[in-house]
Nucleic acid binder design. Structure first.
Lengths: 112, 112
DNA sequence: CAAATATACATAAGAATCTTAGGTATTGAA
DNA sequence: TTCAATACCTAAGATTCTTATGTATATTTG
């Protein structure tokens, strides 16, 4: 079955960590907006994917939460812990390597 | 739980189609070898992932099979159907777009 | 002002894709 | 003759995502 929206292909965690390494704190809804904006609408980060991932990263000690109230509405701001900063660098390195490897596999003409 | 081996991240189908678009016919075991070789051993295409994917592509009419016997051992050679050739181009385009989008999201410095 | 859209969080079912762990059998090398 | 390589295969379970909900507040628009 074909998927209609482009996949994140296992890169969601890396995206979150990277964005948070460039911004002191961000909240979930904000992250979905920024990803859509930066990809000109082609990457749809669904909330059903994002929120569970944020909770997992928090449970793993990579993110910490602070709640802010805007009027009657509340935001959960996430920021990187020390461990999260380390992991952010690690994950970005891995993803870069993956892209490099994929390009090697996909671009090279094979002689039969 | 961390994964030890790099993921294929949903790109396996694309890899198969691309390799077959450059080689008239290939068999499963051969594909696992070539992917390892081209990625200098960093991408491990497990057989548990590959064979079911080949069967799916065949069932979807993108690949066709011809069996060759080498002594007492038999190989199942796969090659692209017409539909498979079309899809191969399509999938490669998609993956390239994905890489481009990811780079936009991951490289850009955000101003807060 | 009412209705629709945007903001902001969340979960749960199911699909898709992969790893891990087996299994069978032949061939070649040590 | 035993081990590694070749060559196929499947099944259980994990992970990651989509799709579909649900709740509630705030803002825009007709």
């Amino acid at each position: 079955m074909q998927q209609k929206n482009p996949l994140l292909k296992g890169s969601l965690i890396t995206i979150i960590l990277k964005l948070l390494s460039e911004n002191d704190k961000m909240y979930g809804y904000e992250i979905t907006r920024i990803v859509q904006e930066l990809s000109q609408g082609s990457l749809k980060l669904t909330e059903g994917a994002l929120y569970p991932s944020l909770h997992k990263l928090e449970a793993d000690g990579l993110l910490e939460v602070s709640i802010e109230n805007i009027g009657n509405r509340s935001r959960k701001y996430y920021s990187l812990t020390k461990k999260g900063k380390k992991e952010s660098v690690e994950k970005l390195k891995e993803l870069n390597q993956f892209f490099t490897q994929m390009q090697q596999v996909l671009n090279l003409k094979l002689s039969v």
